[in-house]
Nucleic acid binder design. Structure first.
Length: 464
RNA sequence: GUCCCCAUCGUCUAGAGGCCUAGGACACCUCCCUUUCACGGAGGCGACCGGGGUUCGAAUCCCCGUGGGGACGCCA
């Protein structure tokens, strides 16, 4: 049987890190087995679903390169299918109308909670052989409930968590269609997973509790039960649960924040999944290695430091032209200038080794394209009166120096020797004058790339 | 409250009864490299939640406890 997996977000917000990982695992599983990856938009909550959220989710997937083979399917466009199945279940007696009002149910729930019991439907309208149902009140439009088995257990071998068993006695008859006739989540999922031929349901473990109900419905429909893999959730950097209020950001935010998609992908893949000691791997390798075993059943805490480390790795590895393209945009945002025609590639080759973030990298090299402003503290600390004579001399020498890093190095060395100084005594003030800060790569290389006239100009600005 | 799930270094994890005086990675510390800061290299610190069992032998299996999380919607 060909593998068919799906990602089924509800469009009520952006694609966050947890959703992205779920999508990634589903996608990788399909890729690994040459199957199909399906995108299904679960938009039956009309109140909260928005087209903007659909777009945001697809943008996130697109950025990460999680391409789907089928879809997007929208549940709101599949109402006819759901209604058809609903009626067949009504006919088959696996579903029934329930006329209990919301208020009635609310009272029931409160009483049960107060008694310390699990709140659940009392089966008032559940048809049973020999049972006389209450009189139907014309006022109430009924909901449809699934007639869940009352005895026995539902069990499945979860690909992540192992065998899970739940007694049917724990389950009540859930509502599968609202009073207005629209089907509810658990029912739509069942119908869709069935009709779309999903073979592996890979989703967040907040759905573990829905699974037994879904299996029961699937069985009532005569469907084969897919395999389930419930992924544990991702916690924030501080170990707290991610929520809109707390740390849950769009994956696109990582792009804005200076992360390469390769780093995010690699990081996410490794979060909750492992392949021996492998830490750094391409998506191609991931798809080859990935399987539903070796997924951790426990929750994982997000760690930005490790993401940074991976980001640094991929910045070093990245094709230099692609890197230049990315940095150009970020640089423009900082300097307002277009550095394209300049020596950007050379500058990046000098700086990429030390960067772990694209925004930081752009910021670090901005001085090549816009005049830096050194801090008073740095100026005071490094550009001291006693080095000025040497600096004066160097400035003169530099005007006649061949503009290569090597020649510049010699020129500095000559002055340093002449004035009986140590190399850093001159290199540090040069850094401050030229780059605006006291940390930079080899100063002669910086100067070579900055250019002779710009270098002389910047030094001159400090000579009295 | 009821049901379900989870539990190895600070963090991500390896580990499927002896290969474990528990391995790797991030972070941290030290040293080396060095023209500052990084990068890189070499070391170091650092964990099996507790208690019972099973076994010749348990991080690994079982039970209990503790802690954390999730679910109990005419939300998804």
């Amino acid at each position: 049987m060909t593998v068919r997996t799906r990602f089924a977000p509800s469009p009520t917000g952006f694609l966050h890190i947890g959703g992205a990982r779920t999508a990634l695992f589903s996608w990788a599983y399909a890729k690994k087995y040459g199957g199909k990856f399906i995108l299904r938009i679960e938009d039956t909550d009309v109140e909260r679903s928005t087209p903007a959220a659909v777009q945001a989710i697809m943008d996130g997937m697109h950025w990460l390169g999680l391409d789907y083979d089928e879809g997007p399917f929208y549940q709101m466009q599949r109402m006819q299918t759901y209604k058809k199945v609903l009626h067949s279940m009504l006919d088959a007696g696996t579903a029934y109308y329930c006329y209990s009002s919301k208020e009635e149910l609310e009272i029931l729930r409160e009483a049960q909670t107060a008694a310390g019991a699990k709140p659940r439907y009392d089966g008032k309208w559940r048809p049973e052989a020999g049972k006389i149902l209450p009189h139907i009140s014309a006022e109430i439009s009924p909901v449809i409930r699934f007639k869940n088995p009352q005895t026995g257990v539902v069990a499945w071998d979860d690909m992540v968590k192992g065998r899970i068993e739940i007694a049917n006695a724990e389950l009540d008859d859930l509502i599968i269609a609202r009073a207005d006739g629209t089907p509810t989540y658990n029912f739509c999922v069942v119908v869709d997973d069935f009709e779309m031929g999903i073979t592996q349901v890979i989703r967040g473990d907040d759905h573990v509790n829905n699974t037994p109900r879904q299996i029961n419905m699937l069985m009532a429909l005569g469907a084969t039960i897919p395999q389930y893999a419930h992924l544990s959730m991702i916690l924030g950097d501080d170990g707290q649960k991610l929520s809109k209020r707390h740390g849950a950001v769009s994956v696109m935010q990582y792009h804005e924040d200076g992360y390469l998609k390769e780093a995010v992908l690699n990081y996410l893949a490794r979060l909750g999944w492992s392949h021996g000691d492998a830490e750094i791997f391409s998506m191609q390798q991931f798809c080859e290695w990935f399987d539903l075993d070796h997924i951790t059943p426990s929750a994982a805490q997000f760690n930005t430091e490790k993401l940074n480390w991976l980001n640094a790795h991929y910045i070093k590895e990245m094709d230099i032209n692609l890197l230049a393209e990315d940095i150009t945009a970020r640089l423009q945002a900082i300097t307002g200038k277009d550095p394209r025609a300049s020596n950007l590639i050379s500058v990046l080759n000098l700086y990429r080794e030390r960067a772990n973030n694209l925004n930081q990298l752009a910021k670090d090299i901005a001085y090549f394209y816009t005049l830096p402003q050194a801090s008073a503290a740095d100026v005071e600390k490094h550009i001291t009166p006693e080095i000025m004579p040497a600096m004066q001399k160097l400035h003169q020498q530099l005007a006649h120096t061949e503009w290569t890093a090597q020649a510049i190095h010699h020129a500095i060395n000559a002055v340093v020797t002449e004035f009986g100084l140590k190399f850093p005594k001159i290199a540090m003030p040069l850094r401050v004058m030229l780059t605006g800060i006291a940390q930079s790569p080899s100063i002669d290389q910086v100067m070579a790339l900055l250019g002779q006239s710009e270098t002389l100009t910047r030094i001159n600005a400090y000579l009295k």
